[in-house]
């Protein structure tokens, strides 16, 4: 930083403070490399996806999952621990502006007509998992069974982790690609993936697909959910929200 050639000093004293400013060059080089990396990222990412990233899809050790963008799902929870719910303890309630409140057990949900959808999953943090099968009851089926009142405008979802919530407009909630999912990848939905029951909103970023779903409340206005109160978009269409331009999932 300061380079003073001090002739008053005895010769040979602190040669240490003279010489080529390699340190400064390294710092500036890192900044340049960082900027270049940001600019070249789309190309580098594509090259990576096509080589190592593709190999990571078939990695039996799972270690490549620790590499950046290593593929597959990531576990995100907003609370410290989430209770396990099973056949006996699980309930899904439907209430709010409806004519008939309801409480479903897992068996009740399985007895209803099931829909299977295979779409890409896109997280708002960037990862995408291709061709993921979700299977469950259409949300519209539950809403119709409950008898939505005319003044209703929206649906709010609550979760048994005790903190997470989500919302959809009534129109969005009635879409055919919005499911109360019981199965993922043709297996019962595991706890880490939000089981036994999660919401699945195929055309939106995955934070809309609330895990550990326990309550459906029909409301007269949209109440922003957990991440939406922290700045995420309420209408979270993939590729048309949150300032992102991912390829739509539907």
């Amino acid at each position: 930083m300061t380079k003073d050639e001090n002739p008053a000093r005895p010769a040979g004293h602190d040669d240490d403070r003279r010489g080529t400013p390699v340190g400064r060059r390294v710092v500036l080089g890192m900044l340049a490399a960082g900027a270049a990396g940001v600019a070249a990222a789309p190309y580098l990412q594509r090259a990576y996806d096509e080589t190592l990233g593709a190999a990571a899809q078939n990695d039996p050790t799972g270690l490549s999952g620790l590499l950046p963008a290593g593929g597959g799902f990531r576990y995100y929870s907003v609370t410290g621990s989430v209770p396990d719910k099973d056949e006996h303890s699980y309930r899904l309630t439907v209430d709010g502006l409806v004519r008939h409140r309801a409480s479903y057990r897992l068996a009740d949900l399985r007895a209803l007509p099931q829909t299977r959808l295979v779409r890409d999953v896109q997280c708002v943090t960037g990862w995408r998992v291709p061709h993921t099968a979700f299977e469950g009851v259409r949300l519209a089926t539950l809403l119709d069974a409950a008898g939505v009142r005319p003044e209703a405008k929206a649906v709010r979802f609550t979760c048994f982790d005790g903190a997470y919530s989500e919302s959809l407009t009534l129109e969005q909630a009635r879409r055919h690609d919005v499911l109360i999912a019981l199965r993922m990848q043709d297996r019962p939905l595991g706890h880490d993936h939000g089981g036994p029951v999660r919401l699945y909103v195929a055309p939106m970023y995955f934070y809309k697909s609330a895990k550990w779903l326990s309550g459906i409340t029909v409301t007269d206005h949209v109440q922003p959910g957990y991440w939406e109160q922290l700045g995420y978009d309420v209408d979270a269409w993939v590729g048309r929200s949150n300032g992102r331009d991912d390829v739509p999932t539907t």
């Binding site: 960082g34 990396g37 940001v38 600019a39 070249a40 990222a41 789309p42 580098l44 990412q45 950046p68 963008a69 943090t125 960037g126 949150n242 300032g243 992102r244 331009d245």
Partner: peptide
Amino acid sequence: THLAPLVWRTGATFVHDWLA
């Protein structure tokens, strides 16, 4: 996230991950 266009942010994520 509103500081810069999206491509910058995606690039920033990429660099942030690998440099980490």
